[in-house]
Design a protein around this nucleic acid. Structure first.
Lengths: 339, 339
DNA sequence: TCCTGCATTGAAATCGAATGCATTATTCAC
DNA sequence: GTGAATAATGCATTCGATTTCAATGCAGGA
């Protein structure tokens, strides 16, 4: 009794199609690439044969010969960020439109970066988009050495020539600070993200500088790690040995939401009546009734588009100098601050 | 003045390493695959030369000859789901451990599926994991034809032989319903996800059946689309021409949260005092103070592991029959229901 | 010393599509 | 109808690592 492994399903190659259509393999190849010199008659024959056999060009063989993988590595750092699902969808839309696919990498600790980069070289990706990840200049240099264009998303690296796409922190935080000051808030607290996050550092420093410009130069800072829990914990930690502030400027929405919950539930402080809290990002939950955050909403769609535009440009035209693109966020007047 | 395009950086291949090390190209290849017959002396020479030249084996060439891409397609349907970031991270962890990488596809409308599948064939992925996407039996059959193993995540397809991994809806919803009934709730409302979602349909039908088992056989259903906004809108729509229910059984947490917000803010109904609301999923926001949902938390880590285990098993042993794995969710007693 | 057996090694074929080059078919002008 | 110009086609090579097979080296036994 034979095993009857119908595993005999051999892959159909361009040679099979060529034989079926009675043309050369080159003709088959040409029929599938647009703009190549081929007669309508031959193309039709090839298409018919291909359809009959169910032929699908093998992308891997193509990659090998053309030296382009058609893949872009997207590096996701695991810092909790609610914008990711939407962002990934937007990035994929934009990249698909350019005929590129996403090869996904996630980064948990910094020590993993080495391994991820190793795999990136091996897979010969055409480009890299790194989401909010921390890269040393040295790592960035490695990409240059390998001639792989990189775009850092949601990071500004003013002192280094590298492509970046970022929401305008300066302008966004400026609006928030100005509104808070104008409304008469006096006792500020800055709730910062972790020190290992470049975005967090930037947002914190900007907030402090802006406050200083308005004459508040001794504003205290408390550090958390960007999560909801951390927002709660930070506020509690502050309250443990200080009086309640007038306004808390949080480095992101998650912490702002945590802060609000802790203030209300544990300390019975009314937001926004007794305490103003502002965030940054405009995450999905930011406009839920219970929070209704006053925040700066990141223009995710436009940022994704910008990142892909920049990347594709460097892929097509190697040697194009680095570009930094900054897009204004949208001020969202919620009801978490008296402004 | 020469252009000085330092573009002359040729890729380093195994031949370059072979020349440098004074061995054959085959030796280089063997040095990089474990378990192949090669003397320590040669391996050392190769390693030294490879390190000196900065050689990285070209994964694409390897894919071509070995007929394995080392890539798994992950299909993300865009239905708002807050579990995705964590899920992707978990999946990637598991897959990386098996030497597999994620090639990401997103699906907006059903009509896009055709294009996605086309690209999946071209990229010769070793397997596919589809997240909560709707697949007709016919589509599933196509994967079989191409000999590509598939695992459907978060879906049960009882009437078709296909690998699935899913949280135990029956058991989870059973616990919720039982607790609500036992606590004396009488007027139930089932808030369902969209009819085009298989998961939504399943959860709704299970809830209705369970309620019927307890003697409630005329429970009304209201349909939404799984989002927060939809949860609000559904509750408002219900209230427009009905009295308030005792308990709302929502198909997911997002709708439950929306429902709670709308009940409190717009109708001044106290949750859980006057109204009990339960959800399903255990999303990040579900345990925030303002909601503190009573829900069933999906065991994401275990589900991801199960999905990868099943997939890798089919990749390594083609012909293994389909498997359906159902994992119990964790009952989370929050404070959104009087139970 | 010679031979058998095993471990290494290298040469060459292979995966499947793309493409430079040479050849053949077609078109157009005169 | 002829020749020149252009389009279409096929041959053969290429991309870079894996793998089969035959050849070589070396060790130990007779």
């Amino acid at each position: 009794m034979p095993t009857d492994r119908s595993k005999s399903k051999k892959r159909i190659t361009s040679y099979d199609v060529a034989r079926e259509a009675g043309v050369s393999q080159s003709a088959v190849s040409r029929a599938f690439r647009p703009g190549l010199s081929i007669s309508k008659r031959t193309r039709d024959k090839v298409n018919k044969a291909a359809a009959k056999l169910g032929y699908k060009p093998n992308a891997i063989a193509r990659m090998l010969i053309t030296q382009k993988s058609g893949m872009v590595a997207v590096i996701l750092s695991s810092i909790a960020n609610f914008v990711y699902p939407e962002l990934l969808t937007r990035l994929n839309e934009q990249l698909s439109a350019k005929g590129l696919r996403i090869l996904l990498f996630t980064l948990d600790g910094a020590e993993e970066l080495e391994g991820v980069m190793e795999r990136i070289w091996q897979f010969q990706v055409d480009g890299v988009i790194a989401l909010a990840a921390h890269f040393e200049h040295e790592s960035i240099a490695q990409f240059e050495e390998h001639d792989i264009p990189v775009v850092l998303y949601n990071r500004q690296v003013p002192d280094h020539p590298v492509n970046t796409v970022c929401c305008d922190h300066e302008q966004g935080i400026g609006q928030l600070v100005q509104a808070l000051v104008k409304a008469g808030h006096k006792k500020f607290l800055v709730m910062s993200g972790p020190e290992y996050s470049d975005v967090a550092n930037e947002r914190r420093e900007i907030a402090l500088r802006q406050l200083k410009n308005h004459g508040f130069d001794q504003v205290p800072v408390i550090f958390g790690n960007y999560t909801y829990e951390s927002g709660k914990e930070c506020f509690a930690r502050w309250m443990a040995d200080h009086a309640a502030p007038d306004a808390v400027i949080c480095s992101n929405d998650m912490m702002a939401i945590g802060c609000i919950d802790e203030a209300r539930k544990r300390f019975g402080i009314a937001v926004p009546e007794q305490l103003s809290v502002v965030g940054f990002d405009g995450v999905y939950a930011s406009n839920w009734n219970s929070y209704d955050l006053t925040t700066i909403r990141q223009p995710v769609t436009q940022l994704a588009k910008a990142a892909v535009d920049i990347l594709v440009d460097r892929i097509d035209n190697p040697g194009t100098p680095p570009e930094k693109r900054v897009l204004a966020g949208e001020f969202r007047r919620g009801n978490s601050a008296r402004i």
